[in-house]
Design a protein around this nucleic acid. Structure first.
Lengths: 109, 109
DNA sequence: TGCGACAATGTCACAATTGACATATCGTGC
DNA sequence: GCACGATATGTCAATTGTGACATTGTCGCA
């Protein structure tokens, strides 16, 4: 790839950096929320499968029952980092996480 | 599943909540770092594939060049949330993210 | 009915992450 | 050698996430 092409792409990138860039971000935010919801569902599913309470999980995570509840409710104040840590502590493997990411449903869309 | 079984699991959960729970957490932390590294690699790969600079990406993300650099370096101060948003803004689909998660050794590099 | 375990929701002080900026380093063409 | 664009690294004030706590709601059981 030569320089002039890169420059053209860059300036295009700058333009979408204002208008379309904004749209791109909100789209990304939406997708991120999707992810959080999926992970929160996976978290609850895994916890219930283990038959442990939110408080028990909280201890393993060195967190609190209320935060676990917020995680499972996909509360805006919980980070992906925390959700992931929760899943991992519950024994989720990268494979499981990946599966959870592209949704419980494979058909329809 | 009956109550007594749940109770046994719970108390077991409590015990590992101290000793093994600590191990479990650090394991989870390690896995989380793995994830971050993988995502940071995917981010750089995607950005380069688009032929845009860190600064251009920063604009689309409403962030700064220095933070993009830190993202691609998997700096401890960057969150998974931010890495994900970066990937999504670069057009990554859930499928792509999932792929990046379980390592670069999936499909052709 | 009341009790006990579990979960949801709100709040807050404290800790972590953020964008921005300055500066340093690297690579390439002149 | 120098200039340049791109990237790396360090710092810091402001924003955001966090654990902890209190409170309330829910469900099953005796």
């Amino acid at each position: 790839m030569d320089k002039s092409k890169q420059r053209r792409l860059e300036s295009a990138g700058w333009r979408v950096g204002t208008a379309a860039g904004f749209l791109g971000l909100t789209e990304a935010e939406a997708a991120l929320v999707e992810f959080k919801v999926r992970l929160s569902e996976a978290l609850r599913a895994r916890r219930l499968a283990r038959g442990i309470s939110q408080e028990a999980l909280a201890k393993q995570l060195r967190s609190s029952q209320s935060r676990i509840a917020k995680m499972e409710a996909a509360d805006p104040t919980v980070s992906l980092d925390l959700l992931l840590r929760g899943l991992l502590v519950l024994g989720a493997k990268p494979r499981d996480v990946a599966k959870a990411l592209h949704g419980p449903k494979r058909a329809a869309a």
